[in-house]
Design a protein around this nucleic acid. Structure first.
Length: 568
DNA sequence: ATCGTTCGCCAC
DNA sequence: AAACGTGGCGAACGAT
């Protein structure tokens, strides 16, 4: 078993304390004070490569980088997983909160920025304890005891091995997230600028509208009678169309697409370009992509399903139109790999449906599905299966579901059972044991707008809410289990990449992007094929680790490219 | 002025 | 005419 070492960083400076742990989590030695924590960590990494047990990766690890560690146990990420299993979803997760629960003390609420690195704008004596521990509590002792408590709680679960895997994967994800934030995604400002200039016109003074955008706005106004209005204002756009006798329910693009008037197409183009300008234009570049790297902050476990969220810069929404700016450094390449039809494959593995598994044993699941049940019509096969996973009922999906129910009864029963559990107010869990939020949790999913709800009879509102909840739980079991596979892939890949290189200049492949079912590795070109092979091996490892023996394949589409835009 | 909400688009 | 799941984000706009 991998050795474990508890670690806390000193609030200021570079020091910290370590303590070796026995297999049951009890101390296996005295606390050790180190003045150079990164050096102490480096020494252990050069040798036994322990699993570091620490309060929160996003608080500790950035201070250690560029020194990397192989594995960790992130107490603040594991705690919510266990709380969910214990019917205490959403309870505070900080070290101090976990300690308080162990000791029977009042439990402190999480701070909004808990986990994030402390600002050093005031002396440590006057800052509240960053771990939320009571005054005078030894944080190292708290780490040791909370960790031992978590180990005991894992052992009590129905599937402790699955939860151990989930905790390890979640923690490894936190390491990868911190490393990616540290390294950044290669971003060529000059190419970004060219793309923007071609689409919008030359860069305008800050705060004013680019030339082509302004011209487009003027064209829309002319097409709608010539009266000036702000195309960014929904209300004014609706009024301008109404003045031409066109009453629109909203300014959504799918609405505009069905309007037979020249102004509609212009408006659509304006909205498209305006979004590029406001969300990913020059201001974005200055804020987020300086020095040739885009440095977003990933929020591990930030989505209830276990997917990552991001904070700042919209890391998980880089428009396809701008991916040409993501270019490998000279002498380097990008390995871009994304899972093909991950979620239906996960459904096949989860449900054990023989027919769907047969389709998922193929390279193109939808093609195989179409051959089995839809007379070769791939589009309808895809539509139907996506509808089944998202809970869609409207439109042409209904008859497709009937076919799916007949041909893939186990798969359909699986998602429909999850939906029923949700509609009845229950909770569902992912394959490894992540629990979905209970209906009473703050920020409930799918609640209709207040005004709308108020105008609706209670019965209808409750029914609508129950159905929304059913769609949520139906999708949760798949999305959350898919996220587990992706996390396991990320962890395995990260470990495999560490064995490649370095080249003559010390360059090694490293992860630079992760988005739900897709990874990007930046790699010295001489190692690109090795890195690509590592991605494939990691995917296979993840499949076996998470789902065990299953005929379902989870293949990746892998491309070695210079530029992200060339990967699809 | 500042804050919170709504709309609507981006990604998967 | 969006009852298809998860999010982030920015402009407009109304409330304070």
């Amino acid at each position: 078993m991998t050795a474990r070492i508890a670690l806390v960083a000193d609030p200021d400076g570079h020091g910290g304390r370590l303590q070796r742990l026995a297999g049951d989590g009890s101390p296996a030695g005295p606390p050790e004070q180190h003045h150079d924590l990164a050096a102490a960590v480096a020494a252990a990494e050069a040798g036994e490569q322990p699993r570091w047990v620490w309060p929160a990766t996003d608080a500790v690890y950035p201070g250690l980088l560029p020194q990397r560690v192989a594995r960790c146990h992130d107490l603040a990420l594991v705690e919510p997983l266990l709380l969910g299993q214990e019917g205490r979803y959403g309870h505070p997760r900080s070290l101090g909160a976990a300690w308080a629960r162990v000791k029977g003390l009042p439990v402190p609420e999480d701070r909004p920025d808990s986990g994030a690195a402390d600002s050093h704008d005031q002396p440590s004596l006057f800052r509240p304890d960053r771990h939320q521990l009571p005054p005078g509590t030894d944080p190292l002792r708290a780490v040791v005891e909370v960790h031992a408590d978590q180990q005991r709680r894992v052992a009590r679960l129905e599937h402790p091995d699955r939860m151990r895997l989930l905790c390890a994967a979640e923690s490894a994800g936190a390491l990868a997230a911190a490393e990616m934030a540290h390294d950044g995604l290669p971003w060529r400002a000059d190419i970004h600028d060219e793309l923007l200039t071609r689409l919008l016109g030359p860069r305008p003074p800050a705060g004013s509208r680019p030339r082509l955008l302004g011209e487009l706005a003027a064209e829309v106004q002319r097409a709608l009678g010539g009266r000036p209005f702000n195309p960014d204002s929904h209300a004014q756009v609706l009024r301008a169309f109404a003045d031409q006798g066109i009453r629109l329910p909203s300014t959504r693009s799918w609405v505009l697409k069905q309007v037979d008037h020249p102004a509609a197409a212009l408006m659509l183009r304006y909205k498209e370009l305006s979004r590029i300008h406001t969300a990913h234009g020059w201001a974005w570049q200055e804020n987020w992509a300086r020095g040739g790297r885009f440095r977003p902050e990933y929020v591990v476990g930030g989505v209830v399903s276990g997917r990552w969220a991001s904070r700042g810069g919209g890391a998980l929404q880089i428009p396809r139109m701008l991916r040409g700016a993501v270019v490998a450094d000279p002498g380097w390449s990008l390995v871009v790999a994304d899972a093909a039809q991950l979620e239906p494959r996960v459904l096949a593995a989860l449900s054990g449906d023989a027919g769907l598994a047969r389709a998922a044993a193929q390279g193109d699941l939808y093609e195989a599905l179409a051959a089995i049940a839809f007379a070769g019509d791939r589009a309808r096969a895809k539509l139907g299966l996506l509808g089944a996973m998202y809970g869609q009922t409207s439109g042409e999906v209904g008859p497709l579901l009937t076919v799916l129910r007949r041909r893939f009864p186990a798969a359909m029963a699986y998602v429909e059972a999850a939906a029923r559990t949700g509609e009845d107010g229950g909770v569902v869990r992912s394959h490894l044991g992540r629990i979905c939020p209970p209906p009473s949790a703050p920020d409930p999913a799918g609640e209709p707008a207040e005004a709308e709800a108020a105008a609706e009879p209670d019965g209808d509102r409750l029914l609508r809410a129950a159905r929304a909840r059913g769609r949520f739980t139906r999708n949760f079991v798949i999305q959350a289990s898919a996220a587990e596979w992706a996390l396991a892939l990320l962890a395995a890949l990260r470990r495999r990449l560490a064995d490649i290189g370095p080249d003559a200049t010390g360059g090694r492949p490293h992860l630079v992007f992760f988005q739900h079912d897709e990874v990007v590795v930046h790699v010295p070109t001489q190692y690109a094929d090795l890195a690509a092979a590592a991605v494939g091996a990691a995917a296979e490892e993840a499949r076996t680790l998470v789902f065990g023996a299953t005929p379902v394949r989870m293949p990746l589409e892998t491309h070695v490219v210079d530029c992200y835009a060339d990967a699809k």
